[in-house]
Design a protein around this nucleic acid. Sequence first.
RNA 1: GCGCCCGUAGCUCAGCCCGGAUAGAGCGUUGGCCUCCGGAGCCAAAGGUCACAGGUUCGAAUCCUGUCGGGCGCGCCA
Length: 585
Amino acid sequence: MKPQLQTLFQHALVQLQTEGLIPQDTVVEVQLEHSRDPKFGDFACNLAMVLAKIAKMRPRDLAERIVAALPSADFVSKVEIAGAGFINIFLVPNAYRQVIATVLQQGEHYGRGQVGAGQKVMVEFVSANPTGPLHVGHGRGAAYGAALSNLLSVAGYDVYKEYYVNDAGRQMDILATSVWLRYLESYGEPFTFPSNAYKGVYIRDISAALKQQYGDSLHHPISAVFADLPADEPQGGDKEIYIDAMIARCKQLLGATGYEQVFQAGLVDILGDIRQDLEEFSVTYDNWFSERSLSDNHTVERAIEKLKAQGHTYEQNGALWFRSSSFGDEKDRVLVRENGLMTYFASDIAYHLNKIERGFDVLINIWGADHHGYIPRVKAAMSALGANPECLTVLLVQFATLYRGTERLQMSTRSGEFVTLRELRDDVGNDAARFFYVQRKSEQHLDFDLDLAKSQSSDNPVYYVQYAHARIASVLRELTERGFPAHEFNAADLASLDSPHEQTLLTRLARYPEVIEAAARAYEPHQIAYYLRELAQDFHTYYNAYKFLIDDANLRNARLSLSKAVQQVLRNGLNIIGVSAPDVM
RNA sequence: GCGCCCGUAGCUCAGCCCGGAUAGAGCGUUGGCCUCCGGAGCCAAAGGUCACAGGUUCGAAUCCUGUCGGGCGCGCCA
């Protein structure tokens, strides 16, 4: 509807230009917006006010000329000039009624758009280190990433979802070492657990399974394990130096094979847990990409060689540096450390090289807000590798700050003190969690009060929206129960839908495709959540104002057609944000 | 110190990109509504110097500058 109206105004504009009222070279976009108040019609156009200065006319006078030049259209009933110079468009009642037929006919496809134009887009999200269970912060990234992927898919993008598994690096070594030390504890010799090791209870579970599988083959006496180690932090030493020494000891005593057994035990267990957690949360991926594979198949070396060949690197203090400052970063970054080990950044460059080579048009990375300082260097790497950094969009998700009442909870994977995503899901349910997470703009800080979420879970907006869906299902059930003939859609019946409530609903339904498009362009699934709430509210109001199961067959069928269309759009929208649309609650 | 995010009703937040008509929701508060298709609902009321100060504009919550508050980040960590 909006595009057709825009065309009308374009014609009027050309007409006025021909008449010489407006300079030929004037370029303006015709802006139409939905009127807030029905008394201002269905759409409002501010063209006259925008052009008043150029035309050297008073806005209202210009508005009259525009209206006079406006071609007639069968879907427009009235055009009014109001206020400072708004041109208000009133549509014929039938213009909106046809949306019912469109919705019922297109079903789950209603709202699908072409903004994406089939572009291949990769959405990489969560990608939490497999060193422990996902916590509520990861949950937000998961819910946002999944909803955004659905949204982009509906908007016409070819979406590919990926999880980058950090299965290499020091954090994983600390994990393996932590598992091994818990394993050694089971032999009864007392020792002090390193302050910097992972202390979560899940580590004990993994070590128990490790013992189950490998028996005593990984056992070494405590005296050998702790011989000649530097002091840990509580003893006046440095916890980082201490844990690194402990990792080295672990590798030395276990040998390559034994260490790999411990390492894999931790990785497989935790990654499996993460996958299951996400699956239960209806968050699925097309691919789980291993960081290790990048070094195994020499992508990291290749990326570095490529940068070297282009002269984008140099050596200093025994380390290899990337000249990222030449590409807009604030300083240069190390790729290979003095000790010969690759930095995480080197892997990340390789990963992005790999993404580029896989031929995506758009790369979207969803990161925690604490990584924002990392964006310039990755973009710098993209440029240095010859790719367009513009095709990479990093979306930052602010932290979810957890509260229990007024008490602010600290989250730390290392200390083992955190609220897991699984605990949250168990408390409030998947649907409420998904909805809660995406109803806030991602860059907005999210205060998540667990007590509130638990105690008032029935007041969560998600139930309000789902209830509207279930209510419609219930009415349709009741139709059969009471012996009414089955609902029939009949376009002619729709003329009886003339109440303000029905107008409101029809307008809302017609806007859905526009909401999808706007939300997709902005990468903002929360717009869908807000829309659904409004649609549900419109329906609840309607439901309370009229009865549907009435003897007048035409009116009954018309109201049920409208209700079914509402139900369909609710289902489509809920599907995007990953919330179920139940028939019974 | 520099960079990013944020500041809108008692609380939690939309609206800001792309400036327009009385600034909107939810929760909470107050008062109504089931002999009637599901009351997880509906109707109504109270509640706001859009952090502050300038600027641009016919018009600013929205754009620009500055100030003040809050969060996060500035490693040869990941």
